[in-house]
Amino acid sequence: MSERINIKMATGIFVYSGKVYIQKRLDNDLWGGKWEFPGGSIEKGEIVEQALAREYIEETGVPVKILGVAPGICYSFENYHVEMFCRYCTFSGGYKKPEMYEASDGFFINPFEINGLPFARGHALLKDILLKSSEFKAILGKY
């Protein structure tokens, strides 16, 4: 039996003008062609906010401002156990068009119109929780 691998991830729910930013994973990546909220692994010595800021720069070129804690998700697949530590975020220093450094597509969308899109596993769980959250709706109304 394979050893269980624990992964801690920072994931950002990026809000702007009542919409959220989502990106499509590269076809040759795990869950290729599926949609996600940007983020990635938390490196040794980083806190969630540092990892999220680094990942957004690496994936989109956009500096982010953390707005607060969002619901977290835990899930397992194969021999992996993933903990997603989520934060609401928005632009730091004004609008900047996100680049596609690690994705094949990405855009801001009304979050209540994303149900038909195929999301990567943990991100699908997160999406479902967000769409029922009054806190999420309140943050959308502010940013």
Rank of each mutant, 00 (worst) to 15 (best):
I66R: 01
I66D: 10
P71H: 03
L52S: 05
K8D: 13
R121P: 11
T60E: 01
G116Y: 15
E99M: 11
I47V: 13
I73F: 11
C86G: 04
R4G: 12
S76E: 14
G18T: 02
K132C: 14
P63M: 02
R121V: 15
F119G: 03
F112L: 07
F136H: 09
Y143H: 14
E135P: 05
G94K: 03
G72S: 15
L140T: 04
T90K: 01
K24F: 09
H123A: 02
A138F: 13
S17A: 09
N79E: 07
F85R: 10
K24V: 11
F91E: 04
Y75F: 11
P98I: 01
L125C: 04
E46G: 01
I109T: 02
C89K: 00
A138P: 03
K97M: 11
E113G: 03
K65L: 14
G141H: 07
K137E: 15
G116H: 07
E46Y: 06
T90H: 03
S134W: 07
E49W: 06
R121K: 15
E102D: 10
H81S: 09
G12C: 06
T11L: 08
G32T: 06
Y88H: 03
V15H: 00
R87E: 10
E49K: 04
L117M: 15
N6E: 11
K132L: 12
F37M: 00
A53M: 14
D128S: 13
G45Q: 05
F77S: 07
C74G: 06
F108R: 00
V20M: 01
G45K: 05
G122T: 05
F77W: 12
L140A: 04
L30M: 14
F85P: 00
F112G: 06
M9R: 14
V69P: 00
N110D: 05
I57P: 03
L125D: 08
L130R: 01
A70P: 15
F108G: 00
V82H: 08
A70S: 13
L67R: 04
I73S: 04
S92M: 09
L26Q: 08
F112H: 12
M84P: 13
E58I: 07
T11A: 05
A120I: 09
E83F: 13
M100D: 14
K96Q: 13
V82E: 05
G61V: 07
E49R: 00
G18C: 07
S76D: 13
F37S: 00
S104D: 13
I139P: 04
G39H: 06
A120W: 05
K8F: 10
L130D: 02
A70V: 06
G72H: 08
